[in-house]
Amino acid sequence: MSVFDWFCGARQAQQQLAESRQRLYRMALAWTGDPALADDLAQETLTRALQKAHQVRDPERFNGWLFAVLHSCWREHLRRRRPEQLDEEEKHRLPAGDPGPAQLRNSGQISALVRAAVADLPDGQRQVVSLVDLEGLSYAEVAGVLSVPVGTVMSRLCRARRALQSRLLNLHQETTESARLRSVK
């Protein structure tokens, strides 16, 4: 790799970083369920990433690298927090429980339902399913971000989607039934 390529790669990484705040925020929100914490994590990730952007020499690896930094910030947060903080953070999590089928025409309710279902997944599954579905990272990239084997990514994803499917699709059936009943009345 020439010096020119290296310089261009680092510059491109800086530019990509500037555009990454929302994506980081969404991912952090999916992982934590807490908007304020998600914003803090996104900011911390950006700060660290800006300092280290020169390390990214291959722009194609930028996404994986960026989310690995976010993952690192999140792990550090989990290690730092005190037991009493756990209860406090739970209060900020997205509401548990599903909205009724009648509300599902409202897109906000659909989002809330899906987010609540994702929030109830175990940490590892939640991270894998959000990295794959929200960001479209490949299994190999997710394995790199989380430092786990690709096989683990595949099995966690499988279990996560199975759990989500059983929770979300039951509600879909109720929704369809509810719509049918309304049209009969």
């Binding site: 929302q22 999916a30 897109s107 989002s111 987010r115 499917q165 699709l169």
Partner: peptide, 20 residues
């Protein structure tokens, strides 16, 4: 089909999430 629905729902569930 069921897995595709599940994946699509998750993929769009945070579309309206804007950082402060």
């Amino acid at each position: 089909s069921r897995l595709a629905i599940t994946r699509d729902l998750v993929a769009h569930a945070w579309d309206d999430a804007e950082p402060p």
